[in-house]
């Protein structure tokens, strides 16, 4: 059984969001970069659990990015995984990235491809479905539970107002979210071991870019909170009904 786990790099959840170069680039200087939480806490950890249940499982991590990403790839390897592949490419176009990953995935012959449900920076929610389409595989999104029995996966996914339990044959692409696994912290043994695990760098293939970011902007600041006395909270009801007109 071979699992491919897609790893993305995002700013830390508490990072200040600001832009440079005439609002065309995220101001990344001084920002702490992390593994996209959905990729780390849910998809990678669930893959590691599957390997713990069946030690013959092989986990490969894949990332598209420049050498700046190597520290977060090593951190992912410290959590688990046998080797990592970095596609030496940087793009905000999901078609470009997904096609690059799909090409590597095709050669690797994976049974299972995991992604996070989205990245917390561009919130595209697209890579998993795009890889699946490129490889003509079934895809289950927003998975909160994943179990394997032979070559059949049973996956619980979130739907609006509830959950749905699906069964699908491998190979399969799954996007993961909260519930799949519990967050882990790499141990000393993992950190030491990660240093010598293979990190293969591959040259990107010729792929078209279909979209481009023109500019970024920030939402207007709130004009300030209107405080209501705790003695007369019924005033809130009047304001919501007559001023904000939301109830």
């Amino acid at each position: 059984m071979k699992i491919l786990v897609c790893i993305s790099k995002t700013p830390d959840t508490t990072a200040k969001i600001a832009f440079t170069d005439n609002n065309t680039k995220f101001a990344g200087d001084g920002v702490q970069w992390i593994i996209n939480p959905y990729d780390e806490w849910y998809s990678l950890v669930r893959a590691i659990e599957l390997k713990e249940a069946d030690p013959s499982t092989i986990i490969h991590l894949i990332h598209a990015g420049t050498a700046d990403s190597d520290p977060i790839i090593r951190k992912a390897l410290a959590l688990g995984g046998d080797e990592a592949i970095r596609i030496d490419a940087d793009s905000q176009d999901s078609y470009y990235i997904a096609t690059q990953i799909a090409k590597v995935a095709q050669e690797g012959g994976y049974d299972l491809i995991f992604t996070g449900k989205e990245t917390i920076d561009y919130n595209g929610s697209s890579i998993g479905a795009m890889i699946a389409e490129t490889l003509d595989l079934p895809f289950i999104s927003h998975a909160v539970k994943f179990d394997l029995s032979g070559s059949t996966a049973t996956v619980t996914r979130e739907i609006e107002g509830g959950e749905e339990v699906d069964q699908a044959p491998l190979p399969l692409v799954v996007s993961c979210q909260k519930g799949m696994a519990e967050m882990r912290i790499p141990g000393m043994k993992g950190i030491m071991g990660a240093r010598t695990k293979p990190l293969k760098v591959v040259t990107p293939a010729e792929v078209d870019t279909l979209t481009s970011v023109v500019s970024f902007d920030l939402p207007p600041a709130k004009s300030g909170v209107k405080l209501i006395s705790p003695e007369t909270p019924e005033e809130l009801v009047i304001l919501l009904s007559e001023e904000a007109k939301v109830i």
Partner: peptide
């Protein structure tokens, strides 16, 4: 983008 903390104009 950035979980609602900013907007991007994408061509």
């Amino acid at each position: 983008v950035f979980s609602g903390k900013a907007f991007a104009h994408v061509a």
